[in-house]
Structure formats: structure tokens, C-alpha cells
């Protein structure tokens, strides 16, 4: 009985210690991201959604604390996944009102990453759960999988370069679920139809969207007028 109690106590202490580790790690990541009050960057955005034929577009990205984020396409129309505000990392951990769970270590390519799950404490939060894959050594989030109530699950994959000191990625790949797109022919006035029925594999591919943003020329902490975000 005594041994059993000791074992339970040990497991409890260990899990508390791991949760504290995870919290500490999140704090370190957050501290790094908090070095950035605002930034402006240029970039290239590639939209890969099965039912959208779009060219690569040059974009400008603006961020301002706490969670103002805007992607503007240079003179054109931009398509972003719903909930696109979450394309930036800061908004993922902007609030501190969440519980952290350490989910161990996982391999991502050649890297070993600490997996931390964030559970919002507020019931009203749109985010149900976020799973962060963190490079402990660099305090950088390499991958984030977020499940929301309204906009499904989306995955962000980050690649870092010159601005890793600020936790700013060089590339973000954003994967998300899309709904089937179909407009009645009466609306599009396209009565001619020589399209072949989609295979099951094509239908599945149609439900996945991917937006890749390659950042260039970060300008950090030089101030950004609030009007840009309107």
C-alpha cells in the first residue's frame, strides 16, 4: 500500500514538473516573440487550393502587438483561409489564459521537438486545442496544429532563417480544410459542361487547402500606423 501511494505521488509530481517545464518553455517562446512590437515584411504568397487557379502573388505583411495582423496583396485580390489572422505565431500564444500539457518529444524530419498542447480556459474561445511542436534549444515553434470551433483544423509549418532571434519565420505553410465548391450553372451561366466526374482521391484533395508564404525583408520595431489594419 505504501509503495503504491509512493508511486502515485511520484507520477503526480512528475506530471506537475513536466507541465511546469512545458509552461516554462512556452514562456521562453513567448518572451522571444515579445521582442517584436511590430513588423512589416514583404513576401510571396502561393495559394494551392484544388478549385482555385491563382498565380503567385507579391504581398506585404503587417503585425502589431498584441494580435493585429494583416496581409495585403500588392494591387490585387488575395485569398486567405478563414481565420487567417492566426497565420501569425504571436496570436497563438498571445493570451496566457490556457492550460499546458506536455505531450513528450516527437521527430519532425531530422529534428526532435517538444510537443506541448494548449487548452484555452475560456469556454468562449474559438480555439479548442493547439498542439505546438517546439524546438527547445532555439525556443522556436516549428509546427502548430490548431483545432477551432468555427474554422476546422489548420496546420502551420514554419521554417526559420535570419530572423529566428525574434521568432519570425522565413516561410510559413498553412494547411487547412476547405468545403466543396460548386456554383449552380444558372448563376455562372455555364451550361456547357464537359468536365469529368472527380475520383475519390481528387475529391479528398479538393478538401485540403495550402497557402505558402515566403517572407522577405523584415522591418522590425520601426512602427506601423494602426490605420493599416482597418
Amino acid at each position: 500500500m505504501k509503495k503504491c501511494c509512493l508511486f502515485v505521488l511520484f507520477v503526480f509530481c512528475a506530471s506537475v514538473a513536466m507541465a511546469q517545464d512545458a509552461s516554462q518553455l512556452i514562456k521562453k517562446v513567448k518572451a522571444k516573440l515579445e521582442l517584436v512590437d511590430n513588423y512589416e515584411a514583404t513576401g510571396v504568397m502561393k495559394t494551392d487550393i484544388a478549385f482555385i487557379k491563382a498565380p503567385i502573388g507579391k504581398i506585404k505583411i503587417y503585425f502589431k502587438k498584441p494580435n493585429l495582423f494583416k496581409i495585403k496583396k500588392e494591387g490585387g485580390i488575395s485569398l486567405l483561409p478563414k481565420g487567417g489572422l492566426s497565420v501569425n505565431l504571436s496570436s497563438l500564444i498571445a493570451s496566457s489564459n490556457y492550460s499546458t500539457i506536455d505531450a513528450g518529444i516527437q521527430d519532425l524530419g531530422s529534428k526532435k521537438l517538444r510537443v506541448v498542447k494548449l487548452l484555452p480556459n475560456e469556454e468562449s474561445s474559438d480555439v479548442v486545442i493547439s498542439t505546438l511542436y517546439i524546438n527547445e534549444k532555439e525556443s522556436l515553434i516549428e509546427k502548430a496544429v490548431t483545432t477551432t470551433k468555427e474554422n476546422g483544423t489548420y496546420t502551420m509549418l514554419m521554417r526559420y532563417g535570419a530572423f529566428s532571434n525574434y521568432g519570425l519565420p522565413d516561410q510559413v505553410v498553412f494547411e487547412f480544410n476547405t468545403k466543396n465548391y460548386k456554383l449552380p450553372k444558372g448563376i455562372t451561366l455555364e451550361f456547357e459542361d464537359d468536365s469529368k466526374p472527380l475520383t475519390a482521391a481528387q475529391q479528398l484533395k479538393n478538401k485540403k487547402g495550402r497557402v505558402e508564404i515566403n517572407y522577405k525583408n523584415y522591418v522590425v520595431n520601426k512602427g506601423i500606423p494602426a490605420a493599416i489594419f482597418n
Binding site: K182, L183, T188, S195
Partner: peptide, 19 residues
């Protein structure tokens, strides 16, 4: 003028303004 965003029956086409 701007980019041209065309809604077709089963897909969408985005054409750059210059195109």
C-alpha cells in the same frame, strides 16, 4: 480595374490585372 476573380461552376480563376 484590378485582378479578375471569375467564379466558374466547379472552380475559381484569379487572373492578374496585367494578364
Amino acid at each position: 480595374t484590378d485582378d479578375m476573380f471569375l467564379l466558374k461552376t466547379s472552380y475559381v480563376v484569379l487572373l492578374k490585372e496585367s494578364d
